[in-house]
Computed example of a mutant assay.
Amino acid sequence: MLKQNRSATSSLEQVLDELEHDYIVSHPKSAQQVKRAAEVLPGGSTRTVLHFDPFPLVIDRASGSQLTDLDGHTYIDFANDFTAGFYGHSDPVIVRALNDAIDNGLSFGGLSIFEEKLASEICSRFPSIDRVRFCNSGTEANLIALQLAREATGRSKNLAFKGGYHGSMLSFLGGKNINYGVGDFVFADFNSEESVDAAAAGILDDFAAIVTEPMIGSGGGILADAKFLSFLRDFSQKHGALLIFDEVQTARMAGGGLQEVFGIRPDLTTLGKFLGGGASFGAFGGAAATMDLLNATCQGAIPHGGTFNNNILSMAAGYAGYSKVATRDAINVANNLGGRLRQI
Protein backbone atom coordinates (compact mmCIF):
# COMPACT_ATOMS: atom_id res chain seq x y z
CA MET A 1 0.00 0.00 0.00
CA LEU A 2 2.81 2.41 0.90
CA LYS A 3 4.53 1.70 -2.43
CA GLN A 4 1.24 2.38 -4.27
CA ASN A 5 0.80 5.69 -2.47
CA ARG A 6 4.34 6.74 -3.35
CA SER A 7 3.75 5.75 -6.94
CA ALA A 8 0.51 7.76 -7.07
CA THR A 9 2.25 10.78 -5.56
CA SER A 10 5.10 10.48 -8.03
CA SER A 11 2.66 10.24 -10.93
CA LEU A 12 0.77 13.30 -9.74
CA GLU A 13 3.97 15.30 -9.40
CA GLN A 14 4.99 14.25 -12.90
CA VAL A 15 1.64 15.36 -14.33
CA LEU A 16 1.89 18.70 -12.52
CA ASP A 17 5.44 19.21 -13.81
CA GLU A 18 4.26 18.52 -17.36
CA LEU A 19 1.32 20.91 -17.01
CA GLU A 20 3.59 23.64 -15.68
CA HIS A 21 6.04 23.11 -18.54
CA ASP A 22 3.23 23.33 -21.10
CA TYR A 23 1.94 26.51 -19.43
CA ILE A 24 5.37 28.17 -19.56
CA VAL A 25 5.95 27.19 -23.19
CA SER A 26 2.52 28.39 -24.36
CA HIS A 27 2.55 31.75 -22.53
CA PRO A 28 5.88 33.44 -23.38
CA LYS A 29 4.41 36.94 -23.74
CA SER A 30 2.78 36.81 -20.30
CA ALA A 31 6.09 35.60 -18.85
CA GLN A 32 8.00 38.44 -20.50
CA GLN A 33 5.49 41.06 -19.40
CA VAL A 34 5.49 39.90 -15.78
CA LYS A 35 9.29 39.94 -15.80
CA ARG A 36 9.30 43.53 -17.12
CA ALA A 37 6.65 44.56 -14.60
CA ALA A 38 8.69 43.12 -11.73
CA GLU A 39 11.25 45.89 -12.33
CA VAL A 40 8.72 48.49 -11.18
CA LEU A 41 6.02 46.51 -9.32
CA PRO A 42 6.74 44.16 -6.38
CA GLY A 43 6.40 40.67 -7.84
CA GLY A 44 5.28 42.12 -11.15
CA SER A 45 1.76 43.07 -10.07
CA THR A 46 -0.17 45.38 -7.79
CA ARG A 47 -2.73 42.88 -6.48
CA THR A 48 -1.48 39.85 -4.56
CA VAL A 49 -4.53 37.66 -5.13
CA LEU A 50 -3.83 37.60 -8.87
CA HIS A 51 -0.38 36.07 -8.44
CA PHE A 52 0.30 32.39 -8.99
CA ASP A 53 3.38 30.36 -9.92
CA PRO A 54 5.20 30.16 -12.24
CA PHE A 55 3.74 33.53 -13.34
CA PRO A 56 0.22 34.94 -13.74
CA LEU A 57 -1.56 35.50 -17.02
CA VAL A 58 -1.55 38.99 -18.50
CA ILE A 59 -4.93 39.80 -20.02
CA ASP A 60 -5.02 41.71 -23.28
CA ARG A 61 -8.77 42.16 -23.81
CA ALA A 62 -12.18 40.87 -22.79
CA SER A 63 -15.65 40.70 -24.27
CA GLY A 64 -18.88 39.22 -22.98
CA SER A 65 -17.95 36.15 -20.95
CA GLN A 66 -14.47 35.72 -22.42
CA LEU A 67 -10.93 36.86 -21.68
CA THR A 68 -7.98 36.81 -24.07
CA ASP A 69 -4.38 36.89 -22.86
CA LEU A 70 -1.29 38.42 -24.49
CA ASP A 71 -0.48 35.12 -26.19
CA GLY A 72 -3.90 34.95 -27.84
CA HIS A 73 -5.45 32.25 -25.67
CA THR A 74 -9.16 32.79 -24.94
CA TYR A 75 -10.86 31.65 -21.73
CA ILE A 76 -14.41 31.57 -20.41
CA ASP A 77 -14.44 33.88 -17.38
CA PHE A 78 -15.98 31.94 -14.50
CA ALA A 79 -14.08 33.96 -11.88
CA ASN A 80 -15.85 37.29 -12.60
CA ASP A 81 -13.05 39.16 -10.83
CA PHE A 82 -14.25 37.85 -7.47
CA THR A 83 -17.82 39.06 -8.26
CA ALA A 84 -16.73 42.55 -9.40
CA GLY A 85 -17.25 41.32 -12.97
CA PHE A 86 -20.82 40.17 -12.40
CA TYR A 87 -22.00 42.11 -15.49
CA GLY A 88 -19.52 40.42 -17.78
CA HIS A 89 -17.27 42.44 -20.06
CA SER A 90 -18.46 45.44 -22.03
CA ASP A 91 -22.19 45.21 -21.36
CA PRO A 92 -23.70 47.61 -23.94
CA VAL A 93 -25.91 49.42 -21.41
CA ILE A 94 -22.96 50.12 -19.14
CA VAL A 95 -20.60 50.99 -22.00
CA ARG A 96 -23.13 53.53 -23.26
CA ALA A 97 -23.38 55.08 -19.80
CA LEU A 98 -19.58 55.26 -19.53
CA ASN A 99 -19.20 56.80 -22.98
CA ASP A 100 -21.83 59.42 -22.17
CA ALA A 101 -20.09 60.22 -18.90
CA ILE A 102 -16.70 60.56 -20.62
CA ASP A 103 -18.18 62.81 -23.30
CA ASN A 104 -19.60 65.11 -20.63
CA GLY A 105 -16.41 65.51 -18.62
CA LEU A 106 -14.46 63.76 -15.87
CA SER A 107 -13.58 64.67 -12.30
CA PHE A 108 -16.15 67.40 -11.75
CA GLY A 109 -15.12 68.25 -8.22
CA GLY A 110 -18.84 68.71 -7.65
CA LEU A 111 -22.09 66.80 -7.37
CA SER A 112 -23.80 65.02 -10.25
CA ILE A 113 -27.29 63.60 -10.66
CA PHE A 114 -25.97 60.05 -10.81
CA GLU A 115 -24.93 59.75 -7.18
CA GLU A 116 -28.52 60.46 -6.09
CA LYS A 117 -29.87 58.04 -8.70
CA LEU A 118 -27.57 55.22 -7.60
CA ALA A 119 -28.20 55.97 -3.92
CA SER A 120 -31.97 55.88 -4.48
CA GLU A 121 -31.69 52.52 -6.24
CA ILE A 122 -29.66 51.04 -3.38
CA CYS A 123 -32.00 52.39 -0.70
CA SER A 124 -35.00 50.96 -2.56
CA ARG A 125 -33.41 47.49 -2.61
CA PHE A 126 -32.23 47.39 1.03
CA PRO A 127 -34.89 48.19 3.65
CA SER A 128 -32.11 48.50 6.25
CA ILE A 129 -30.54 51.41 4.32
CA ASP A 130 -32.18 54.83 4.71
CA ARG A 131 -29.06 56.70 3.68
CA VAL A 132 -25.94 55.59 1.84
CA ARG A 133 -22.50 57.07 1.37
CA PHE A 134 -20.05 56.20 -1.40
CA CYS A 135 -16.32 55.54 -1.24
CA ASN A 136 -13.75 53.72 -3.39
CA SER A 137 -13.66 50.06 -2.37
CA GLY A 138 -15.15 47.44 -0.11
CA THR A 139 -12.08 47.72 2.10
CA GLU A 140 -12.69 51.43 2.57
CA ALA A 141 -16.41 50.88 3.17
CA ASN A 142 -15.73 48.44 5.99
CA LEU A 143 -13.06 50.61 7.60
CA ILE A 144 -15.40 53.61 7.62
CA ALA A 145 -18.42 51.61 8.79
CA LEU A 146 -16.47 50.32 11.77
CA GLN A 147 -15.28 53.83 12.62
CA LEU A 148 -18.84 55.13 12.26
CA ALA A 149 -20.01 52.46 14.71
CA ARG A 150 -17.41 53.71 17.18
CA GLU A 151 -18.68 57.26 16.81
CA ALA A 152 -22.32 56.21 17.10
CA THR A 153 -21.79 54.13 20.25
CA GLY A 154 -18.91 56.00 21.91
CA ARG A 155 -17.13 52.64 22.20
CA SER A 156 -14.05 51.15 20.55
CA LYS A 157 -14.05 47.33 20.51
CA ASN A 158 -15.37 45.09 17.73
CA LEU A 159 -16.16 41.41 17.28
CA ALA A 160 -15.28 39.68 14.01
CA PHE A 161 -14.95 36.09 12.84
CA LYS A 162 -12.02 33.83 12.12
CA GLY A 163 -11.83 33.25 8.38
CA GLY A 164 -13.62 36.50 7.61
CA TYR A 165 -12.33 38.90 5.00
CA HIS A 166 -13.41 42.55 4.93
CA GLY A 167 -10.71 43.94 2.67
CA SER A 168 -6.95 44.18 2.39
CA MET A 169 -6.61 45.84 5.82
CA LEU A 170 -9.27 43.73 7.54
CA SER A 171 -8.24 40.18 6.64
CA PHE A 172 -8.83 37.53 9.28
CA LEU A 173 -7.83 34.55 7.15
CA GLY A 174 -4.64 33.87 9.11
CA GLY A 175 -1.05 34.35 8.02
CA LYS A 176 0.63 37.66 7.30
CA ASN A 177 -1.47 40.72 6.57
CA ILE A 178 -1.45 44.53 6.64
CA ASN A 179 -4.41 44.84 8.99
CA TYR A 180 -5.27 48.15 10.60
CA GLY A 181 -6.37 48.45 14.22
CA VAL A 182 -6.47 44.69 14.86
CA GLY A 183 -5.99 45.35 18.58
CA ASP A 184 -9.55 46.67 18.63
CA PHE A 185 -10.97 43.24 17.66
CA VAL A 186 -11.87 40.03 19.39
CA PHE A 187 -12.55 36.95 17.28
CA ALA A 188 -15.15 34.21 17.40
CA ASP A 189 -15.90 31.08 15.38
CA PHE A 190 -18.44 31.57 12.61
CA ASN A 191 -21.85 29.96 13.21
CA SER A 192 -21.03 29.36 16.89
CA GLU A 193 -23.18 31.19 19.43
CA GLU A 194 -21.10 29.85 22.30
CA SER A 195 -17.92 31.24 20.74
CA VAL A 196 -19.49 34.68 20.37
CA ASP A 197 -20.52 34.68 24.04
CA ALA A 198 -17.00 33.75 25.10
CA ALA A 199 -15.19 36.18 22.78
CA ALA A 200 -17.38 39.16 23.70
CA ALA A 201 -17.32 38.57 27.45
CA GLY A 202 -14.29 40.77 28.01
CA ILE A 203 -15.40 43.75 25.90
CA LEU A 204 -19.07 44.21 26.79
CA ASP A 205 -18.43 47.58 28.46
CA ASP A 206 -16.70 48.88 25.31
CA PHE A 207 -18.53 46.93 22.59
CA ALA A 208 -19.08 48.98 19.41
CA ALA A 209 -19.86 46.52 16.62
CA ILE A 210 -20.11 43.02 15.23
CA VAL A 211 -18.95 42.75 11.63
CA THR A 212 -19.71 39.67 9.57
CA GLU A 213 -20.31 38.43 6.06
CA PRO A 214 -23.68 36.63 5.79
CA MET A 215 -21.67 34.11 3.81
CA ILE A 216 -17.95 33.89 4.49
CA GLY A 217 -16.37 34.32 1.06
CA SER A 218 -12.57 34.09 0.97
CA GLY A 219 -12.63 31.90 4.08
CA GLY A 220 -14.39 29.07 2.28
CA GLY A 221 -17.83 30.04 0.96
CA ILE A 222 -19.51 29.20 4.30
CA LEU A 223 -23.15 30.24 4.50
CA ALA A 224 -24.37 31.54 7.83
CA ASP A 225 -27.07 29.65 9.69
CA ALA A 226 -30.27 31.69 9.83
CA LYS A 227 -30.48 31.02 13.57
CA PHE A 228 -26.93 32.29 14.04
CA LEU A 229 -27.61 35.59 12.28
CA SER A 230 -30.76 36.04 14.35
CA PHE A 231 -28.65 35.44 17.43
CA LEU A 232 -26.17 38.12 16.31
CA ARG A 233 -29.02 40.56 15.73
CA ASP A 234 -30.38 39.97 19.24
CA PHE A 235 -26.93 39.86 20.86
CA SER A 236 -25.81 43.17 19.40
CA GLN A 237 -29.04 44.91 20.39
CA LYS A 238 -28.88 43.48 23.90
CA HIS A 239 -25.38 44.89 24.43
CA GLY A 240 -25.81 48.20 22.59
CA ALA A 241 -23.49 47.35 19.68
CA LEU A 242 -24.15 47.82 15.97
CA LEU A 243 -24.46 44.86 13.63
CA ILE A 244 -22.59 45.35 10.35
CA PHE A 245 -23.26 43.07 7.39
CA ASP A 246 -20.44 43.01 4.85
CA GLU A 247 -22.37 42.37 1.62
CA VAL A 248 -19.54 43.40 -0.70
CA GLN A 249 -19.74 39.97 -2.33
CA THR A 250 -23.19 38.76 -1.28
CA ALA A 251 -25.26 41.73 -2.52
CA ARG A 252 -25.53 39.90 -5.85
CA MET A 253 -27.20 36.85 -4.27
CA ALA A 254 -30.66 38.43 -4.09
CA GLY A 255 -32.35 41.68 -5.03
CA GLY A 256 -31.64 43.03 -1.56
CA GLY A 257 -28.61 40.93 -0.71
CA LEU A 258 -28.45 37.98 1.65
CA GLN A 259 -30.03 40.06 4.41
CA GLU A 260 -33.20 39.91 2.34
CA VAL A 261 -32.96 36.12 2.09
CA PHE A 262 -32.46 35.79 5.85
CA GLY A 263 -34.98 38.50 6.71
CA ILE A 264 -32.57 40.29 9.07
CA ARG A 265 -31.86 44.02 9.14
CA PRO A 266 -28.34 44.98 10.16
CA ASP A 267 -27.56 48.45 11.47
CA LEU A 268 -24.99 49.08 8.75
CA THR A 269 -24.37 47.39 5.39
CA THR A 270 -21.21 47.61 3.31
CA LEU A 271 -21.22 47.18 -0.46
CA GLY A 272 -18.72 47.17 -3.32
CA LYS A 273 -17.49 45.24 -6.35
CA PHE A 274 -20.16 44.83 -9.08
CA LEU A 275 -22.24 47.77 -7.86
CA GLY A 276 -19.75 50.11 -9.53
CA GLY A 277 -20.62 48.69 -12.94
CA GLY A 278 -17.01 47.64 -13.43
CA ALA A 279 -15.45 50.85 -12.09
CA SER A 280 -13.94 51.18 -8.61
CA PHE A 281 -16.65 51.37 -5.97
CA GLY A 282 -17.53 51.07 -2.32
CA ALA A 283 -20.53 52.08 -0.22
CA PHE A 284 -21.87 51.88 3.30
CA GLY A 285 -25.36 52.65 4.51
CA GLY A 286 -27.84 52.23 7.30
CA ALA A 287 -30.47 53.94 9.40
CA ALA A 288 -30.83 57.69 9.00
CA ALA A 289 -29.97 58.36 12.64
CA THR A 290 -26.56 56.71 12.23
CA MET A 291 -25.75 57.90 8.73
CA ASP A 292 -26.72 61.49 9.51
CA LEU A 293 -23.70 61.67 11.79
CA LEU A 294 -22.01 62.44 8.45
CA ASN A 295 -24.53 65.11 7.43
CA ALA A 296 -22.46 68.21 6.69
CA THR A 297 -25.49 70.48 7.21
CA CYS A 298 -25.56 69.53 10.90
CA GLN A 299 -23.34 71.10 13.51
CA GLY A 300 -20.62 68.74 14.72
CA ALA A 301 -20.93 66.38 11.75
CA ILE A 302 -18.13 63.88 11.15
CA PRO A 303 -16.19 64.77 7.97
CA HIS A 304 -16.03 62.07 5.31
CA GLY A 305 -13.90 63.02 2.32
CA GLY A 306 -12.61 61.18 -0.71
CA THR A 307 -11.70 62.73 -4.06
CA PHE A 308 -13.24 59.86 -6.01
CA ASN A 309 -16.18 59.00 -3.72
CA ASN A 310 -18.62 60.28 -6.34
CA ASN A 311 -16.46 59.92 -9.43
CA ILE A 312 -18.64 60.15 -12.49
CA LEU A 313 -17.55 56.83 -14.02
CA SER A 314 -18.55 54.75 -10.98
CA MET A 315 -21.74 56.70 -10.42
CA ALA A 316 -22.94 56.56 -14.03
CA ALA A 317 -21.90 52.96 -14.66
CA GLY A 318 -23.13 51.88 -11.24
CA TYR A 319 -26.57 53.38 -11.75
CA ALA A 320 -26.93 52.02 -15.29
CA GLY A 321 -25.84 48.56 -14.22
CA TYR A 322 -27.87 48.30 -11.03
CA SER A 323 -31.08 49.82 -12.39
CA LYS A 324 -31.11 48.40 -15.93
CA VAL A 325 -28.95 45.26 -15.95
CA ALA A 326 -28.93 43.77 -12.45
CA THR A 327 -32.67 44.11 -11.92
CA ARG A 328 -34.27 41.96 -9.25
CA ASP A 329 -35.48 39.51 -11.91
CA ALA A 330 -32.06 39.36 -13.59
CA ILE A 331 -30.31 38.70 -10.27
CA ASN A 332 -32.73 35.87 -9.53
CA VAL A 333 -32.13 34.33 -12.96
CA ALA A 334 -28.35 34.53 -12.52
CA ASN A 335 -28.45 32.89 -9.09
CA ASN A 336 -30.81 30.17 -10.32
CA LEU A 337 -28.35 29.41 -13.11
CA GLY A 338 -25.58 29.25 -10.53
CA GLY A 339 -27.65 26.82 -8.49
CA ARG A 340 -28.11 24.60 -11.52
CA LEU A 341 -24.37 24.72 -12.25
CA ARG A 342 -23.57 23.53 -8.72
CA GLN A 343 -25.72 20.44 -9.33
CA ILE A 344 -23.77 19.35 -12.41
Rank of each mutant, 00 (worst) to 15 (best):
S11M: 05
S11T: 03
V15N: 08
K29T: 09
Q32P: 06
Q33V: 14
V34T: 14
V34E: 08
K35V: 02
A37P: 02
L41R: 15
P42T: 09
L50Q: 03
H51S: 09
F52V: 08
D53L: 04
I59S: 14
R61I: 01
S63A: 04
T74W: 04
A79P: 07
A79K: 13
A84Y: 01
A84V: 02
G88M: 09
S90H: 14
N99H: 14
N99Y: 13
D100M: 09
I102F: 03
F108A: 03
I122Q: 03
I129T: 04
I129M: 06
G138V: 06
N142W: 04
L143M: 06
L143A: 04
L146I: 13
L146S: 04
A152I: 15
T153S: 14
R155L: 12
K157T: 09
K157S: 11
G164F: 05
Y165L: 10
S171V: 02
F172Q: 01
I178K: 07
Y180P: 11
A188M: 05
D197C: 11
A198K: 14
A198F: 06
A199D: 07
G202L: 09
L204W: 04
L204T: 10
D205G: 00
A209L: 10
A209Y: 06
G221V: 05
L229T: 02
A241V: 00
A241Y: 00
A241T: 01
V248M: 02
G255C: 14
G255E: 15
Q259C: 15
A279P: 03
A283C: 03
F284M: 03
G285N: 10
G286A: 09
A296W: 15
Q299C: 02
H304M: 12
Y322M: 05
K324H: 13
R328S: 02
R328F: 11
I331S: 04
N332M: 07
G338M: 14
L341W: 13
R342D: 07
I344W: 08
